[in-house]
Design a protein around this nucleic acid. Structure first.
Length: 422
RNA sequence: AGAGAGGUGGCCGAGUGGUCGAAGGCGCGCGCUUGGAAAGCGUGUAUACGGAUUAAUCUUCGUAUCGAGGGUUCGAAUCCCUUCCUCUCUGCCA
């Protein structure tokens, strides 16, 4: 959620950058918002003054009771009963306008960073890097055929015990999955991230804090009668660990990593692009999260991207790095890089990581601040990235490492799998 | 799940209707002291919003907040209701 103060101070810049997104009438929305806020300030002043008067009278009544001046007391009480009516009315007005402002603020997406390319189409995304040596051989099988052939993932079994989109990893498939998780966790720890094992159910407050609700509520599985959601990503619990905290500047940056399963309804998804491991309702992901000071967040975004790239290089998978255009940018993100691995069996790119800077959009909702040396507090910048999401990495490994009747295991994973081929 | 107890500032803890945003202690910051440190002394130490001030921070005044929400009262940390959470005992269970 944007800060109203920031909107007031940098109105033109915000309108300019927000208009890169497909938000209708952004200029008039912002202008109306500022008018509403002006009104709010006036009402707040009135409210404060009335309460001040009321408190003063109440104090005087107390003093008069002690001194036994009964005649004055009745006058003061009468006076207060009049003020009380005004306070009631003003309180209602204040609540109403605060709600109105809040609703507008939560409906505005994050402001794209200045160097986010503008556009609403896929081709407006900027390919920052693309691996060369990509195998395009017709004999290469898609991963769903290889999976069946080698019996490492069973989709029908998942259908039986749950429903579509919940595969069962079997035998070496399960071991490979576990190897990837451990490898990703260990690498992140080497880079200074602290491992966290969070709950995979979150409450409404946490879902609001990172921006899943109200915007993406329909994408999450909700637990009936509990007001809890299954996490769509570890970003939610990990970032919300710091909700309502003021972090000392010496404890910045905060770097956390977590492995969790992730659950997404993916409502409206259908067709060939959901085949095999391409899109699942439950999948595993290792997520890195940083909470940093505002002036450093973009260099940290680069640092996180470099880390993700390093993983992809170590796995020796063809990949590309994409700077998302304004139209593809997530609601809460100011700037996002996507990483895609190549699937030679499908002859297409698969998104396997998304690294984003949310600037203060999440920290304003979740109330995460940094206390600076001079005792002032600023909203922190939050960032997160998949490092990495498993299924498409797995698909890419299976397809890229296929040969004859085998699938080789990437070198870096062998210590984790204990076998070098499937 | 049943019975009981309880939720107060970074932490501990006092406060059962009146000037209480809250005693006292610990911790931490700053200053004095010291060759340096400890001790000692002094002083400061919540958050949000609004006003004044500022480039901004700081500062200052006002308002709100003692788990959350509502109620009683001129006045609520204190009384009442609802709700969430924690602890102890009993039950169940990986």
């Amino acid at each position: 959620m944007l800060e109203i103060k920031n909107i007031r101070n940098n109105k033109d810049e915000i309108i300019l950058n927000l208009s890169k997104r497909k938000v209708n009438n952004i200029k008039s929305i912002i202008n109306d918002l500022i008018k509403l806020d002006d009104k709010r300030k006036k009402i707040k002043s009135l409210y404060d003054n009335l309460n001040s008067q009321y408190n003063q009278s109440s104090k005087e009544i107390g003093i008069n009771i002690k001194e036994g001046k009964n005649s004055k007391i009745e006058d003061l009480k009468k006076q207060n009963s009049v003020i009380k009516e005004d306070i009631k009315k003003t309180t209602e007005d204040l609540k109403l306008i605060e709600k109105e402002i809040f609703d507008i603020l939560t409906s505005i997406p994050n402001v794209p960073y200045k160097n986010v390319p503008q556009g609403n189409k896929q081709e407006n995304n900027e390919i920052v890097f693309e691996s060369e040596a990509i195998k395009i051989e017709n004999k290469l099988l898609p991963h769903w055929d290889l999976i069946k052939k080698h019996k490492i993932i069973d989709f029908e079994l998942g259908n039986k015990i749950t429903s579509a989109g919940f595969p069962v990893y079997v035998n070496k498939g399960a071991k490979l999955q576990r190897a990837l998780i451990n490898y990703f966790l260990d690498e992140a720890i080497k880079k200074g991230y602290t491992e966290i094992q969070p709950p995979i159910l979150i409450n409404e407050n946490s879902a609001f804090g990172t921006g899943q609700i109200p915007d993406k509520e329909g994408q999450m599985y909700k637990i009936e009668n509990e007001n809890l959601f299954l996490i769509p990503t570890a970003e939610v619990p990990i970032t919300n660990v710091y909700q309502n905290t003021i972090i000392d500047t010496n404890d910045i940056p905060i770097k956390n990593v977590a492995y969790t399963p992730c659950f997404r309804k993916e409502a409206g998804s259908w067709g060939s692009h959901v085949r095999g491991l391409n899109r699942l309702h439950q999948f595993d992901k290792v997520e890195i999260v940083q909470i940093v000071s505002p002036e450093k967040s973009y260099s940290i975004l680069d640092e996180m991207c470099n880390y993700v790239e390093e993983l992809l290089k170590n796995l020796n998978l063809p990949y590309r790095k994409i700077r998302l255009c304004s139209g593809d940018l997530g609601f809460t993100s100011a700037m996002t890089y996507d990483f895609e691995v190549f699937s030679p069996g499908q002859k297409k790119w698969l998104e396997c990581s998304s690294v984003s800077n949310f600037e203060t959009y999440q920290s304003n909702r979740a109330n995460i601040k940094i206390k600076l040396e001079n005792r002032s507090k600023v909203l922190a910048h939050t960032l997160n990235g998949s490092a990495l999401a498993l299924p498409r990495i797995l698909a890419s490994i299976i397809e890229n490492y296929q040969s004859n009747n085998k699938i080789k295991i990437p070198k870096v994973l062998i210590p984790y799998t204990g076998f070098d081929e499937i």
